[in-house]
Design a protein around this nucleic acid. Structure first.
Lengths: 230, 230
DNA sequence: ATAACTTATAGTACATTTGACTACAAGTGA
DNA sequence: TCACTTGTAGTCAAATGTACTATAAGTTAT
């Protein structure tokens, strides 16, 4: 650990981030356009090198922060990708993280080697270089599974939301329609949603109640053996 | 990729293997005793370095094969572990794989830098060096989740098995008792088990039917949307 | 003001699944 | 033949899932 500068890169290992957002009723992914190097001009997953002085989790957080200005968000490792020829110029193994953010909270600003940064709906993602297509595909599968069994969806919508918004989110993630009354009943029965006093505004129909995800309640239930399952 | 000998090690990244077996009614893990180096004499997870010429999956398979003589088994990546100080002498990130094997099929032979290799019941695993305790703990959690939602348990028992054997396996993995008639009903209803004509032999009671896991049937069901769940 | 429309929210009825059981069958060995 | 062990089938109430219908509470057009 001493023969390297602590903030130097370990150039055999990189981090790539799958950043999911929910906008206009569909699930989106954040891509950056390379401003230099062999993939100049192409869209790819935001990524970077791990430094000697930081853990891989810290590294992922730093890279994401530098690319989006976002801190303190839901960020978790998926797995490592390490085919021999996945990266053209040398042997690089990459560790993939995914994050869930609310796009409206952030203004994108391309930094470092990125010429641009932009959201793409998951079904309109262009062909990506390296093995990023494979990473995106596996990441979406991973997210679907995860979202079904852990209440992570709340990271994608505003703090206060209507049940229909929540339902629309899950329909987008899972790729299937859900029955409205049944969805309401199921999710309310879980007992970790709290009704706000406020109601929806600026809608041209009956205003729906706003709800809030009560993380404490959820944690307490989980400790007692409750398992979220959509 | 050219400035390195293809079979040289990438010494910033290693592979560690969590090899699960089912024996004497309990879930066990394979450990090796280090024969040299700073951890000489201590038990730890079998692991090794990734070579420039092999993918990480191939690497895991090779390491496992060299340590156990086993090929062609269920082997899958869990995730990477990369805390800064997880390894004492230098910065090493490790990618962890897990495998499910039938211990009775293999004779352990310690190789390479290992002085010995031995099975330990999961609740009798000694304190391990590095972050291997954490890896084992996370790995067991991972296995529990996985076993509940994918029919991987069949890799731990003989091709032909009784329903009670299968139940005992799941009780060991999940760490809870299951009701016999209900377990039978549930698993048979899934329709991917096939009754063999044979029955159990050498038992001093009514012989149970032997069953076989029909992978083809399972795959067909899965394609139709069926989801295995314990 | 009222009708038409949209979404919210409540409720119903039926099928399926789960969980805790009981009962009986089929072997073994004393 | 009886006691004992394990295998296998079945029962029943409770909980859950699924496909609906119905009504409430607003908005907008007439």
């Amino acid at each position: 650990m001493n023969q390297h500068p602590p903030d130097g890169p370990i150039d055999a290992i990189s981090i790539d981030c799958l950043i999911f957002g929910f906008q206009n009723g569909s699930l989106e992914i954040l891509l950056v356009q390379h401003g230099e190097g062999i993939s100049k001009g192409r869209w790819a997953l935001p990524g970077g090198w791990i430094k000697y002085s930081e853990s891989i989790d810290e590294s992922a957080n730093r890279i994401l922060r530098d690319l989006t200005g976002v801190t303190n968000i839901f960020l978790e490792q998926i797995k490592a990708f390490g085919d021999v020829s996945r990266y053209p110029t040398k042997r690089v193994i990459t560790i993939v993280y995914y994050a869930l953010v609310k796009p409206e909270n952030y203004t994108l600003h391309a930094g470092f080697t990125a010429a641009d940064a932009q959201w793409f709906p998951v079904d309109e993602v262009p062909t990506l270089p390296y093995d990023h297509d494979q990473i995106v595909a596996e990441g979406i599968t991973f997210l679907k599974e995860k979202a079904r069994r852990e209440p992570i969806g709340f990271n994608l919508i505003p703090k206060k939301f209507t049940l229909l918004q929540l339902q629309a989110l899950y329909e987008a993630i899972l790729g299937q329609r859900l029955d409205k009354p049944n969805f309401r009943r199921k999710i309310l029965k879980m007992n970790f949603l709290e009704v706000c006093k406020e109601k929806q505004t600026d809608v041209s129909h009956r205003a729906a109640s706003l709800y809030r995800f009560d993380k404490r309640k959820y944690e307490r239930l989980k400790d007692k053996g409750f398992i979220f399952e959509l």
